[in-house]
Nucleic acid binder design. Structure first.
Lengths: 204, 204
DNA sequence: GCATCATGCGTACAGATGTACACACCAGTC
DNA sequence: GACTGGTGTGTACATCTGTACGCATGATGC
């Protein structure tokens, strides 16, 4: 839907002003980053149509590459989904890590968590929608479970630098729940309530 | 190919071996509860294969009904999914309601919540897997969003009979997150940690 | 008894999908 | 300049999917 604020997104999803589709001898594409771009586009398709509605053809069309390019770059649908969700988890964990490691005190860290939950980076529609698809997949398939395992381990480790292990676990769960809640609820919790909940969990 | 009246035996459909040999022309089913049974079976198929892997044929096979029965009872796949997820949400909310309304004090209610999270009724694998599929669908499609809206409203209302509105919201989020956490984590939070988290949220 | 019609059943069919594969082309290396 | 191996492209094809539709049947009301 909305392009989203991600700065690292390469170009646009649409055709880069292709040289007239009617041209039978369209210049061959030299596209060294194609695989990464396909993964990016795939995440968008997953967010918009769900895993159920994600097809090679849809991704190829959205990325403006021929269908054959899909089977060249990925060993089938599962490989593609795995690659895409791995990127999603790593990106998200990177932001989480960076934000938390910038905090210099418990209070700072708590406020950083509030910011992550109520901000727009971790909880952009595309990220949330794709994450939910990953959760559903990971709960059923061990191959995808390892992605969420690594992701959760990183989150816990980041929280653990500021909070004791048990509190880190609780915080992790609360973050998960609040994020989900805010994504699904028509009338989501306000920032004040989020902050109050975090403080109740972390207060000594 | 030919529409001839040659033996139309339904035995090739992987009959459940129960009627077996003595009955080549299996008696016509009289099955007044079929629709409800199909919904039940559908939830199982959704839990096992995800919405992406849920097909009319799979459900029909699992329920041991002919394919044609699907289009007779449901107006297409969307109608089927909607019906199934509605049943899932109502069942779950019923349990939640009943358990919480049996509590007679704040402490009772808090412990009831701990029981719901760590018990096996609300968090059976099938329920969790299907719920995650519903979440992913609801986040994208308004028609399914209304199911989760109603569900969340009932949860909040049930919590609201024991806790102030803000605490009820926080609890709801924490429950969601802890449940998800326990479903996805290899090393889930123990009962003690769950209880401690609930108490931190509800303590005055 | 029997008429009726909601329910049950088998099958056909158009379209979509994953995947394989043969060929075209470009960037380096000698 | 020729070679070569990776990269890009178009298309074919078996399979699966949703759905429609005609016929069978027996429960129900008379």
């Amino acid at each position: 839907m909305t392009p989203g604020p991600a700065a690292h997104r390469s170009a646009d999803r649409g055709a880069p002003a292709a040289p007239a589709a009617g041209d039978p001898t369209r210049a061959r594409r030299h596209d060294p980053q194609r695989r990464e771009r396909l993964i990016d586009v795939a995440l968008g398709v997953i967010a918009e149509h769900g895993v159920a509605g994600t097809t090679h053809r849809r991704i190829a069309a959205a990325a403006d590459v021929p269908l054959g390019s899909m089977t060249y770059h990925f060993d089938g649908m599962d490989d593609l989904l795995h690659a895409a969700f791995t990127v999603l988890a790593e990106r998200t964990a990177d932001v989480f890590d960076a934000t938390l490691s910038a905090a210099t005190s418990r209070a700072d860290a708590a406020e950083a968590v509030v910011g992550l939950i109520t901000g727009t980076t971790l909880t952009s529609p595309e990220t949330m929608l794709a994450s939910l698809e990953l959760y559903a997949l990971a709960a059923r398939r061990p191959a995808f479970r390892s992605i969420t395992d690594a992701w959760m381990a990183r989150s816990r480790a980041a929280l653990h630098t500021h909070f004791d292990p048990e509190t880190a676990l609780m915080l992790d769960a609360l973050i998960e729940g609040t994020t989900l809640h805010r994504a699904l609820s028509l009338d989501p919790m306000g920032v004040g309530t989020v902050r109050a909940a975090i403080l109740r969990i972390v207060r000594p």
